[in-house]
Computed example of a mutant assay.
Amino acid sequence: MNRRQVTPVVMLAVTLVAGACGKSSTSGPKVPTSVGKGEGQLNLIAWLGYTEDGSTDPKSDWVHPFEKQTGCQVHVKYGNTSDEMVTLMRQGGGSVYDGVSASGDATNRLIAHGDVAAVNVNLVPGYKQFVPTLQSPPHNTVNGVHYGVSYMYGANELMYNTNSVTPAPTSWSTVFDPSSPYAGKLTAYDSPIYIADAALYLKTHQPSLGIKDPYELTSAQLDAATALLKAQKPNVKKYWSAAADEIDLFTSGDLVAGTAWPYQVSILQADHQPVAAGIPSEGATGWADTWMISSHAKHPNCMYKWMQWASTPQVQVQVAEFYGATPSNTASCSILTAGIGAAAAAPYHCGDEAFVHQLYLWKTPLAQCGNGQSNCMDYSVWEQKWTEVKG
């Protein structure tokens, strides 16, 4: 995956989108200089919980107000994994969907393949209020060119049943120790990127492996992470990709511990289920999501209007309260605290730059290691290893 090699493809695609919105005369990829009237429709790919219209909870609706304000009718296809989202974005030559809420393990693949267009962040007022780290992060900004605007971020937490798992777990050994007392009632995320969670655990418990970054693994390091996951497999009742599957099995009592997003925790706690979650001593992987516009979007103005809307502190606070994720827009923080109280807002770490750096955010594994070496295993190898784990 060489991002620089595909720049001409991206430039051509972006020129077409810019023509619909107003062209820029600057050098490099052309981006809109203004946003015109909405085309009346917007087709999105999103994570569940990111585009609520009140159907799940009448109090959680930031889609209908957007439709009323812009005239853009929103249609959403939910994706369960980043791999699925990448595939969906390429349907119909990339013209089926206008945009996607992509995580860091998908964004650079979409950029490199020319699936997404460069974005003029100056047309998104909320951008200037983002946490500095998420204004131009490497997962959505390449060579100074923005290919989207940050949305929400958070950790892949260890969720557990507070009645069954005591005392409260402080280590990922709860799920990775072959002799875990919760064998047969554990769960894990069904994606090759979950290998990074195993690598992060080994970073602490097998320091001799020399793992520095759980996404930059040599062949030996990847083999060690794969072996840990194979040893874990007999204890796993369910590998989940759909959040609803994990929610259902925690509700029924069939699962008592495993990796989860804040969304599942939020839904289960709202249903008064005995669950809690946290970040164990080894740390946690995480995700920072980006709204990206298709290079072949049929409704580019509506997509820009959506990025503007989704970047406002008012909308991000609603997402935070419903989903449990942390807003990128720091102006959301005071609103969030005022709405739910300081104690309830504390776990969000809103506006906390150090917390963002603490997480090992999803990114696409490449052959090029961050230390200048090129002996790391790329994502295609990770996919092969995950197939081995799942059998």
Rank of each mutant, 00 (worst) to 15 (best):
275 V>K: 05
295 S>N: 07
304 Y>A: 10
200 L>Q: 06
243 A>S: 14
272 H>Q: 11
298 K>I: 00
210 G>K: 01
212 K>I: 06
241 S>T: 13
235 N>S: 10
167 P>W: 09
259 T>S: 14
176 F>P: 03
251 T>N: 12
268 L>R: 10
215 Y>K: 00
305 K>T: 09
258 G>Y: 04
264 Q>R: 13
189 Y>D: 00
212 K>N: 13
164 S>V: 15
274 P>F: 01
196 A>I: 01
200 L>T: 01
275 V>T: 08
306 W>H: 11
165 V>G: 03
222 L>T: 04
202 L>S: 03
173 S>V: 02
166 T>Y: 04
242 A>V: 09
239 Y>R: 14
264 Q>W: 08
219 S>V: 10
194 Y>L: 07
306 W>Y: 15
253 G>Y: 01
205 H>P: 06
211 I>E: 02
289 D>S: 13
227 A>P: 08
211 I>K: 01
228 L>S: 08
245 D>C: 06
220 A>H: 10
248 D>W: 00
170 T>L: 04
280 P>I: 05
256 V>I: 09
190 D>V: 10
291 W>T: 14
287 W>R: 00
204 T>H: 02
227 A>E: 10
285 T>Q: 07
266 S>K: 15
271 D>K: 15
182 Y>I: 05
267 I>Q: 13
268 L>N: 11
267 I>V: 15
283 G>H: 00
294 S>Q: 04
244 A>N: 09
216 E>I: 10
208 S>R: 10
287 W>G: 02
291 W>K: 14
267 I>W: 04
178 P>M: 11
190 D>E: 13
222 L>C: 06
273 Q>I: 11
272 H>S: 15
164 S>T: 14
227 A>F: 08
263 Y>V: 08
171 S>D: 08
193 I>M: 12
262 P>T: 11
212 K>Y: 00
266 S>R: 15
173 S>F: 00
282 E>G: 00
163 N>A: 10
297 A>V: 02
250 F>P: 08
293 I>Y: 10
301 N>M: 11
236 V>G: 10
273 Q>P: 07
245 D>L: 04
284 A>R: 03
244 A>H: 04
244 A>E: 13
195 I>Q: 08
190 D>M: 04
188 A>V: 14
304 Y>M: 12
173 S>R: 11
301 N>I: 01
247 I>M: 04
288 A>G: 12
234 P>A: 03
302 C>L: 02
265 V>H: 15
225 A>F: 02
169 P>Y: 03
210 G>C: 08
225 A>L: 03
251 T>A: 13
204 T>Q: 09
250 F>T: 09
224 A>F: 07
242 A>P: 09
193 I>V: 14
172 W>D: 06
251 T>V: 01
219 S>C: 07
215 Y>Q: 05
213 D>G: 00
194 Y>T: 12
190 D>C: 07
